[in-house]
Design a protein around this nucleic acid. Structure first.
Length: 115
DNA sequence: CATATGACCTATG
DNA sequence: TCATAGGCCATAT
């Protein structure tokens, strides 16, 4: 894992619009990292505080937050997302409704293969 | 060098 | 809708 890949991940995450979410796997693909979704988690975990990344907009493929439900981080992430207008139902976000759908312009073609 | 451990994902039943 | 299994791979120990 090179710093370059971390940087790529941070760049993508920074592009998630206000009020939308993306999954770890989605970010991995947008960054050209294939299915290596775990790397996105590492990149966020190690992101320097000074770039103030909107990491709260990254959730898992089930539409849930990847923290223990009682943890401070879980609550903070949920509150921040709700403050952006995102609604939780039984601890889950409706991905069909809130998922960020980037256009083909600036991302690798593989990302759009399934369409 | 060898295991273990994750802010994960998909397929399957 | 859940639960499990197998895959994933950089860090940590």
């Amino acid at each position: 894992m090179t710093p370059t890949n971390y940087q790529r991940i941070w760049d993508i995450v920074a592009q998630i619009p206000y009020g939308r979410v993306a999954t770890y796997g989605q970010i991995a693909r947008l960054a050209g990292l294939g299915q290596r979704a775990r790397l996105v988690g590492y990149a966020l975990h190690h992101s320097p505080i000074e770039i103030e990344l909107a990491w709260h907009r990254v959730i898992n493929a089930h539409g849930k937050l990847s923290f223990p439900q009682r943890s401070k981080r879980y609550r903070r992430q949920q509150l921040t997302l709700e403050a952006e207008g995102i609604v939780f139902n039984n601890g889950r976000v409706d991905l069909d409704r809130y998922r960020w759908r980037p256009t083909t312009e600036e991302f690798p073609d593989e990302y759009f293969e399934h369409e």
